[in-house]
């Protein structure tokens, strides 16, 4: 993945990739996979937390992305944002159907956070952009909220309920955390 981060992938390169994918150039799919699979797999794995199921979701997501490319509108957002959302949605659907199967709707917060802490160190690449920086810059409360929102698929109201804090506080912390993150990009 060299030093080019996906969110700062040169617009021309992204546009070219989108053009080829929308023209249904199958070889572009391999290129797409090389560029995006680590980021997508990282998100899927942190949500789903099981390797075999993550593999299923990744595969399903890529097929879905391929077939949905016609509906991707570059003017509405970056390619990375769009594909991330597809992967997040599929992953969240996966854990919800699993929780539904097991019968308990929401996992206990402690369980989910422990699971996440255990899951995280397996194979993330510490040399990769920003994770240490993020850990340094985000206060634990902010990080916890972002993790619940982003990796656990909680809504802001669910986070408020889970952490027993006002919804307004959740909104403020989430916004502040996102501001901190966007400063780190530059």
């Amino acid at each position: 993945m060299s030093d080019t981060s996906l969110i700062s992938l040169p617009p021309a390169a992204e546009a070219e990739l989108v053009r080829r994918l929308q023209a249904r150039d199958e070889s572009a799919m391999t290129l797409f996979y090389e560029r995006y699979s680590a980021a997508l797999y990282g998100v899927i794995f942190r949500i789903v937390k099981a390797e075999d199921e993550s593999e299923d979701v990744l595969q399903e997501a890529l097929v879905k992305i391929w077939h949905a490319f016609a509906s991707y509108d570059p003017s509405k957002g970056r390619l990375f944002t769009w594909v991330l959302n597809i992967c997040r949605n599929l992953s969240i659907d996966k854990i919800r159907s699993r929780q539904h199967r097991v019968g308990s709707r929401t996992q206990g917060l402690d369980d989910s956070l422990t699971a996440q802490r255990q899951a995280a160190p397996t194979s993330f690449r510490p040399e990769h952009i920003g994770l240490q920086e993020i850990t340094k810059k985000l206060v634990p409360e902010q990080r916890q909220i972002i993790d619940l929102l982003y990796f656990e698929g909680f809504t802001q109201s669910e986070v408020a309920e889970e952490l027993n804090i006002p919804l307004g506080t959740v909104k403020t912390r989430a916004r502040t955390a996102i501001k901190v993150l966007s400063k780190l990009i530059r």
């Binding site: 996906l6 969110i7 942190r46 990375f80 944002t81 690449r125 990769h128």
Partner: peptide, 13 residues
Amino acid sequence: AALGFYAEAHAIT
């Protein structure tokens, strides 16, 4: 972009 950055920071090959 901020959320994308956060996601990317958690990339796993």
